[in-house]
Design a protein around this nucleic acid. Structure first.
Length: 479
RNA sequence: GGCGCUAUCGUCUAGGGGACUAGGACGGGGCCCUCUCAAGGCCCAAACACGGGUUCGAAUCCCGUUAGCGCUACCA
């Protein structure tokens, strides 16, 4: 058996949708798993909606996810001549015919059928035209499309994910394969290209299932054996409807913006509609490739769960070496208006375990670079209210004690010792000293251990902020 | 309306006739750890859509019902 040839064939009429990205991922995984070839083909035959900008965004999104291709990108628009030749060949072999019906006429027939409660099926009136009539109309310059003759027999195939699927030819109508402007319609273009590119496995969303019998008929009419079809389930929004803009972020670029790591996105997408069997959740690229099979693809559509994506991103974030986060975090800091040339590594290290996205890391790093940026959140406010005057007083005492430490002693061990002594001298719980410090420095009651926080913020900035907050809350300033 | 696809915890899923008291993960709840949170560990709640078969035995095979979704263009 020769190595499979698969393709990802997006149309550049919008951004790279997560559903498309997942289809691309499956194709890529299958190619890598089998040692096959992954072909990228841009289906830009819808001239009205296709743009180069969209093509660029799709390519960028694939690269970001680490999805590579071995051939292409090919552009479908460049094969118009072959599409036309295929249509004309079918016409010459009497497997297709010219249709002179206008859009208006067809629209009328459709609405009439609808009103009668019957499904519309083209009535083949142009197939019945006498040949002199056809010649006459053609010579008079009347525009026409080319329609493919659908036979009435059953068309069935063994889908690699669904098993046997069967349609009756009589339920399908003679569909248009070539527009009156001589350009191919989707079904013809796809089949023509897949034949030319020797595609052996067509993996695509299962919203294409109903196109498949038409395409199989086309393969046969063109004297070719159809490829293996694998229809992968769709991705739904949380309401169970097809994922769309209404559901918020649907483009791969949106998640990149939100600080999701490509490896996390890839892992999450792989597990949406595919399972390696067993309990595996976090899968490295090579494991994914090794374990990927068509049999593991789910039949049922899957709901995109952002919360789980973020959890997975958190997993990747904490496993990632700090070095690899420095650049993405610095980029984000600049967008936040923070330009500081300090070494970010210790700061990232101290916050990344508590973060789910790069944005979240950057926000926290920004506050540690400059505690004056800290804004009180509801939990911080609640603590101040709850502690009353003790908040400012304890803060003042802590600041005074910490001020005694010299720069070289501003280390986690000494810091925690100092604060413990303050607590003991006041016969206060450690938390009553620690929490005000935490709130003063971060605005919230949540952070890394306070001693680490102080160390990372640094002596000068910490003392300044602590005194400031103590003063503002009725405590004694030491600065 | 027609045609097609699908159906296990709220969500992602494991499960291929007996190993099912239906497992894992996210999310939720609790406990431990602890200055807080996260992480980690332990625990709890939570599902085989319904009805018929087949079989000694069905989440698993078959049929029907219901529901959801997709397609039904000179879009892709």
């Amino acid at each position: 058996m020769t190595a499979p040839r698969v393709r990802f064939a997006p149309s550049p009429t919008g951004y790279l949708h997560v559903g498309g990205a997942r289809t691309a991922l499956f194709n890529w995984l299958y190619a890598r798993h089998t040692g096959g070839t992954h072909v990228l083909r841009i289906e830009d035959t819808d001239r009205e909606r296709s743009t180069e900008e969209h093509t660029r965004i799709i390519l960028d999104g694939l690269r970001w996810l680490g999805i590579t291709w071995d051939e292409g990108p090919y552009f479908q628009g460049e094969y118009a001549a072959r599409h036309r030749a295929d249509a004309e060949r079918l016409l010459a072999e009497r497997k297709a015919y010219r249709c002179f019906c206008t859009r208006e006429e067809l629209e009328l027939q459709r609405t009439q059928a609808e009103a009668a409660g019957i499904g519309f099926r083209y009535d083949r009136r142009c197939l019945k035209l006498a040949s002199e009539e056809i010649v006459r109309r053609r010579d008079s310059g009347a525009p026409f499309t080319i329609r493919f003759i659908m036979d009435d027999q059953e068309i069935a195939w063994d889908d690699a994910v669904h098993g046997r699927i069967s349609f009756q030819g009589r339920d399908l109508d003679d569909f248009v394969i070539l527009r009156s402007d001589n350009t191919a319609i989707y079904n013809l273009a796809v089949v023509s290209d897949d034949i030319a590119m020797r595609i052996s496995h067509v993996m695509r969303g299962d919203d294409h299932i109903s196109n498949t019998p038409k395409q199989i008929a086309l393969y046969r009419a063109l004297g070719q054996r159809p490829p293996v079809f694998a229809h992968v389930p769709m991705i739904l929004g949380s309401d169970g409807k097809k994922l769309s803009k209404r559901h918020g972020a649907t483009a791969v670029g949106d998640y990149q913006e939100q600080g999701i790591l490509p490896a996390a996105m890839r892992n999450f997408l792989a597990l949406l509609g595919w399972s390696p069997g067993g309990d595996r959740e976090i899968l490295a690229e090579d494991e994914m490739i090794q374990l990927f099979t068509l049999e593991g693809i789910q039949k049922k559509s899957a709901v995109f769960d952002t919360t789980k994506l973020e959890w997975m991103n958190g997993q990747y974030l904490s496993a990632l070496p700090v070095e690899e986060l420095v650049e993405p975090v610095r980029r984000q800091l600049i967008r936040l208006g923070v330009d500081d040339d300090r070494d970010l590594r210790p700061l990232i290290e101290s916050v990344k375990a508590r973060s789910r996205t790069i944005l979240h890391v950057a926000d926290q790093v920004a506050v540690r670079l400059d505690p004056a940026r800290a804004t009180l959140d509801s939990k911080g406010e609640a603590l101040i209210r709850k502690m009353g005057p003790a908040f400012g007083r304890n803060l003042g005492l802590a600041a005074a004690a910490l001020a005694e430490l010299e720069d070289k002693d501003w280390q986690p061990d000494q810091l925690v010792e100092t604060l413990r002594r303050v607590a003991e001298s006041q016969q206060a719980k450690l938390g009553d000293i620690m929490q005000p410090v935490r709130v003063a420095l971060t605005g919230s009651t949540v952070s890394e251990p306070v001693n680490e926080l102080l160390a990372v913020v640094g002596r000068e900035r910490s003392l300044q902020r602590l005194s400031e907050m103590a003063r503002r809350n009725g405590g004694v300033s030491v600065a």
